[in-house]
Structure formats: C-alpha cells, structure tokens
Design a binder for these strands. Structure first.
Lengths: 119, 119
DNA sequence: GATACACTGAACCATATGGTTCAGTGTCTA
DNA sequence: TAGACACTGAACCATATGGTTCAGTGTATC
C-alpha cells in the first residue's frame, strides 16, 4: 500500500461532506450554541442533532461542554490546516499538469516554427 | 433551512474522505492509469476499483474514457476551488475568533494596567 | 415537591458505502 | 478462430449514516 492512511483526514472530510454539518459550523462561527438551539435551527430532533455534533466533535471541528443541563457547542481548535494543505497540494499538481501542457504546447510551437524556418 | 444545500461540495468532500480515493488522485496526478493498473496498485478487485473511480467521476475529480477494451482514468478538470474556498472561509472565521480573543485579552490587559496605575 | 426542560441512550429504519464473487460482453492477439 | 484480457453488471454481505421514536436521567424553577 502506497497511499497514507490518514484517519483524521478521513474523518474531517467525511464530517464536511454533509450540508447540515457545514451549516452547524457556520452557525457556531457566529456564536456558541446548545444542542437544542441547533436542533431548532435545523429543524431536527435533539437526538439527530446530537449525532451530527458527535461527528463534528470526533473530527475535532467542534468542542462541547456540559454545564448544568445544557451542552454548549463551540468551534474546535483545529484550523483545518491539514485539509487545506491536501487540497493545496492537489491544486498545485493540477496547475503543474497545465504548466506541463503549456510546456508541451510551447515546445510544439517551437518545433513548428523551426520546421517552418527549415523550409 | 438556512444552510445552503450544495450537492457538489457534498460529493467532493465525501469522495475525499476515503484514503484509497485520495491515493487514486495522487496516482493519477503522476500519470493516467487504467482501472486494472489502479486495482493492481491498491490490491483490490476490478469491480471495487471501478466503484471508487465512479465516486471520483461523479465528484468531477476524475474523467474516464474507454478506448478499445481499456478505460483510462485522468485527473478531472475541477481544481477543487469551491472546496478550497469553503475551507479558507472557515479558516478566516477561525482566525477572526482568535483575533477577537486577542482584542478581549488586550482590553483586559489595558484595564489591568489602568487599575494598577489607579493604585 | 411537582413540573418543565435539556439532554442521553437504546432501538429501529431506510439507504449508502466499501468490499466481494460470479457470470457475462466486447476487444485484442497469436 | 481460440484464448486471453479489460471491463461491466448483478447480487450479495457487513457496516456506517442520517434520521426517527420512546423511555429514561439529571437539572432548574415555581
């Protein structure tokens, strides 16, 4: 196996693959919130919301703390740097391919011009 | 519902949440490959590999073309810009929170200093 | 102390995911 | 034309996901 098995990356991308969870993150970026208020906002049962929050928590994107009977959700301490890095690396590869293509094209153009000069 | 339902974002993040699929992308960044060669590289059945490639294809990350009996997989035309933007927006929110925290802390320090000066 | 509130856990359901095997179909190649 | 090769599709399996209901447990509040 060549590919690196990176469970945190797995979990984070999986956590981000759901619109509700991305919405929760956007919501928490504005202000901390309880499970109840989030469930209310996303029109979902408490239990359903708790599951989403757990997924986000496992991915390190959200931190929760229970005080009294209220569990407050806060944006986590991770800045998604590993994920940003992966995507950035991909984009660089992607750009590199186009640059390579550009090179090939310019080489071809060069050859064409040389060929034209030769005639 | 406030959150934006963004199916492409869903599909891309879901596609990236699997280490094998990230490996396939890395592999295709080096060179185009057939289903067979990918299946071989990742020690998986052809059928299994085809499913992974289909997931990547649906997410627009990979393009495939069948010539003769060989289906060749190429890196897609998408540069993951929407995904990079989402993550960047998140990181800005994240940083903003720390800046706000910094402000609060500096305000607190200011007050402390003022208090010390008052004594 | 009764009642309402906020969450929790178990159980259930439908569907998706990640993999397999097996039986084709179509394409090279000797 | 026979055989090998590359893929495809259906069927199956175990597990995960995204949701629900229902029955608690613990905490505020009147």
């Amino acid at each position: 196996m060549v590919q690196c098995i990176n469970a945190p990356l797995d979990r984070t991308f999986a956590a981000l693959s759901d619109a509700t969870r991305r919405g929760i993150i956007e919501q928490l970026a504005r202000a901390d919130a309880s499970i109840t208020s989030l469930a209310d906002h996303f029109q979902m049962t408490l239990t359903g919301m708790k599951k989403h929050v757990q997924v986000l928590e496992r991915a390190g994107l959200v931190i929760t703390q229970k005080v009294g009977r209220v569990r407050t959700c806060t944006l986590g301490t991770r800045s998604l740097s590993a994920e940003a890095e992966w995507i950035e690396a991909y984009r660089m590869l992607f750009e590199a391919r186009f640059e390579a293509l550009d090179e090939i094209i310019s080489e071809m153009t060069q050859e064409e011009n040389d060929g034209a000069a030769g005639h």
